[in-house]
Design a protein around this nucleic acid. Sequence first.
DNA 1: CATATCACTATACTTTTGGATACCACTATA
DNA 2: TATAGTGGTATCCAAAAGTATAGTGATATG
Lengths: 131, 131
Amino acid sequence: MKNKEVKDIKIPMKEHFGNYMVPVRDALEVFSGKWKIPIISALTFYETCGFKELERIVEGITPKMLSKELKFLEENLLIIRKVEDTRPITVTYSITEYGKTCKSVMSELYRWGVEHRKKVFNIEGQTWDKC
Amino acid sequence: MKNKEVKDIKIPMKEHFGNYMVPVRDALEVFSGKWKIPIISALTFYETCGFKELERIVEGITPKMLSKELKFLEENLLIIRKVEDTRPITVTYSITEYGKTCKSVMSELYRWGVEHRKKVFNIEGQTWDKC
DNA sequence: CATATCACTATACTTTTGGATACCACTATA
DNA sequence: TATAGTGGTATCCAAAAGTATAGTGATATG
């Protein structure tokens, strides 16, 4: 191939997409992993829970993971932690107003995921219809 | 606390959410990881690319990861692989019509991610405005 | 006084994910 | 014949993510 007829050389993504990926990654960081969506969902449903309550609601999670994920979600302003002055002291975790904005993303993931199951596994009509 | 005044005991998620999490997980599997979104984006932009082209477009990816992710995306019907009868033989990867449906999820992730950056890092007005 | 509950933390381990490097067969070009 | 480009594999390694199990100190209950 001669240099004259240089056919469309495809350039690296950054030329086209700029920093498009950065906020997408940020969003994915909040939703990915095994436990973040279950925890957000639980707190969206119940508004407020204690630590042990969450341990029971989110089945299978270990206290280590729960503790770690709650810290992450608090740092990301999706939930608030409050130490209540009771005996014994209790700690409550609540979804924030901002935390509720996750719903739009989660329902888009849900919607696409349902179609994907149909397409890829030909699985339909199951009880993916709650919430 | 007496059994009489059992105060709202919070039950495990499955009672409320059923299998809600399953398609959400399916969707996340397609979009999470370091390389899937960049590859999908590249193929959405260029429609068709060769292996080495993708290696150059998706900066930093190793052939091992590229090969692995392409297989995954093909199994998930998002892209098609075609061996062209040229000399030397070339292989093309193209986005499928179905693959283009990822756009809605990705733009929702993007939209939410931009707001999240504003909220959490107070970073605004950057060039997250391409694509 | 024994046991249980609350909200965790500590330690060690396994699994998953991704990276670095080298290399393969084939073909075309200089 | 040497070099470069095609589309990948094969190995080994490091880091991240997640699991299993035990234990802490304070308080409350039977």
